[in-house]
Design a protein around this nucleic acid. Structure first.
Length: 560
DNA sequence: CAGGCGTTGCTGGA
DNA sequence: TCCAGCAACGCCTG
């Protein structure tokens, strides 16, 4: 069981007391996974306390980092290039910052639990320290590692520091079940125990790294050394990984008191890409380059200085609490990343349609607003939150009825900030599978973007083939007369695809399907089996066939 | 068991 | 910029 939320007073004194002359003959291993930072890092501070030598380790898991030529985009089996590069940049920065305080990062390669077992043995480690992690992958891995370590008599310290609250505390407070709404989460969570005190400053000293013996250690590898072709000329994410970059970004964001105080998430402009409407601190929180607790305190300091400010859920602080909420539900819900056997997930007869999925994934839906967002995802690994809503809604409950798990996989791979708990939660939210159920509220792939960017600058940037399309057709280029298409050097159906569905009829069908699927879920109290879903899908396909001639005619008319 | 409420819908009108 | 009307869900609270 993870220890309860941190005692910050302990952390404040920890380093000054870690005096090398008082050495007790112990070696510590600090295992970095997330939490790639020196500030507010209780596991690292504990490792430093009273140790002769501290071995800061990062293990490169080939499963996560080796190139996979069969993946749909360049990268490994699980991550696209942007996120792999972001991670390497974060590690280089960590190594740099460790070197400034007399240490360094030791990079090893292999299955993490095997690598660590060897290290514990070779370096005669007495304390193994690593941040507690709620993800199923780490839960399983950490169990293995803890078993190895305990058998070898190694002390384990695994504090909760990736989140502000300990998800386990919240779940216990709620009678063993995670809260299912933001408001009930807020009530349960209250204020962090350390809200009125200040968390510790950055570490200024670490015990040296001991002899590495026979363990194969290296510097942080480059993309090339990992086997990736990393062409400079490719458009890549403008966001650079690392703690230094995170703190710089944080300071820039919070230096504008008024902006912090008036932040209202739903009012941001998703089409603003040169100057994003949000902080873009999410990738740094994901990898723990930025401490969520430090961020929380910084926002609080700003709010104390201003007359009035926005409140959760829309405020900046509210965004951090969304993260906490989703981490808590994800930790307390078995099979959180799937529809089947997931108690909080509505059972919907989704399609497993590869053609539709690929059209969406590869920015070929024929809806410029949707496709531009998907190009930004591929190139930058980041889009505004509302842009994510639009494409997720379009793929699932709004238009295509493709399974949310298929969209989730694409986001998980390509986003630099993809986070297991938050990504799955948001896909369930947007697909009306959990948390949010108003399936009649559908984002229009045409008019939603128009509200913010009537001239279509965002579309023109990410879809250059449409750059000369007149404003009045930029969101619906298939309605442009032939001569306009010729003049814009963009023939619809040749230079840019025709729309993959007619939004009006597709969204109407989606609402009908959801009406029936919800009814079935209600009647069976959520226990819908595969047979039930099949029936529903069959029934619905009949409706689709009946409506097809009509919608085909309409489509033809639209396309001309 | 009913009523209030929910981070971010759309259209059309003032 | 704000509003009503649209159609209407489940969760939480009393």
């Amino acid at each position: 069981m993870p220890p309860a939320c941190l005692n910050f007073s302990l952390m404040r004194f920890s380093l000054s007391q870690a005096n090398p002359t008082m050495a007790s003959g112990s070696n510590s291993l600090m295992w970095f996974r997330k939490g790639i930072r020196l500030h507010d890092n209780p596991a690292l501070e504990y490792a430093a306390r009273g140790s002769d030598f501290v071995y800061p380790v990062f293990v490169i898991d080939p499963h996560y980092m080796d190139p996979d030529p069969n993946a749909f985009s360049p990268g490994s089996k699980l991550a696209g290039l942007n996120r792999i590069r972001f991670l390497l940049e974060s590690l280089v920065d960590l190594d740099f910052n460790l070197k400034k305080i007399g240490s360094r990062l030791l990079v090893l390669k292999g299955e993490p639990s095997e690598v660590l077992s060897r290290c514990l043995n070779e370096w005669r480690i007495s304390k193994l320290c690593f941040e507690f992690d709620t993800e199923p992958y780490y839960q399983a891995l950490d169990k293995k590692v803890k078993n190895h370590a305990s058998a070898a008599g190694v002390e384990i310290y695994s504090p909760v520091s990736h989140t502000i609250f300990n998800p386990l505390d919240i779940i216990q407070k709620n009678g063993g079940k995670p809260p299912l709404s933001y408001q009930s989460f807020i009530k349960l969570a209250g204020k962090p125990s350390w809200a009125s005190s200040h968390i510790s400053d950055e570490i200024t000293w670490l015990p040296p790294v001991g002899s590495v013996g026979n363990c194969m250690i290296s510097e942080v590898p480059s993309m090339k050394e990992l086997g990736y072709e990393d062409k400079e000329e490719d458009e890549r994410t403008p966001f650079k990984g690392g703690e230094s970059e995170a703190l710089k970004r944080l300071r820039e964001s919070i230096s504008n008191n008024e902006w912090v105080a008036n932040f209202e998430k739903p009012k941001g402009d998703p089409s603003s890409f040169l100057k994003p409407a949000t902080t873009v601190l999410s990738p740094y929180l994901k990898f723990g380059c930025l401490s969520s607790r430090y961020f929380y305190q910084c926002i609080q300091d700003v709010q104390r200085d201003v007359k009035k400010h926005t409140s959760p859920p829309v405020s900046l602080l509210g965004q951090l609490l969304w993260r906490e909420f989703f981490y808590t539900v994800a930790f307390g819900t078995p099979n959180f990343d799937q529809m089947k056997d997931n108690k909080i997930c509505k059972q919907i007869p989704w399609k497993y349609d590869d053609e539709l999925l690929v059209a969406w994934r590869d920015a070929k839906t024929g809806f410029p607003w949707i496709d531009a967002i998907m190009v930004q995802l591929q190139k930058w690994g980041w889009m505004h939150h509302l842009a994510r809503h639009c494409v997720a809604c379009f793929l699932t409950r709004g238009d295509l009825l493709v399974h949310w798990e298929m969209g989730r996989d694409v986001f998980e791979r390509l986003l630099i900030d993809s986070d297991w708990s938050i990504n799955n939660a948001n896909w369930m939210w947007l697909s009306c599978s959990s948390f949010f159920y108003q399936y009649n509220r559908i984002y229009s792939p045409i008019s939603f973007g128009k509200k913010y960017d009537p001239k279509g600058n965002y579309i023109r940037h990410f879809l250059p083939m449409l750059k000369d399309m007149p404003d009045e057709y930029i969101y619906e280029p298939w309605t442009a007369p032939r001569n306009v298409q010729v003049k814009a050097k963009c023939i619809i159906g040749k230079d840019y695809p025709k729309p993959v569905v007619d939004h009006k009829s597709a969204s109407k069908e989606c609402k009908q399907l959801f009406h029936e699927a919800y009814e079935l879920n209600k009647r069976l109290n959520g226990k819908v089996n595969e047979e039930g879903l099949k029936d529903l899908r069959r029934k619905f396909e009949e409706v689709e066939r009946e409506q097809e001639p009509k919608s085909k005619k309409l489509k033809q008319k639209l396309i001309g």
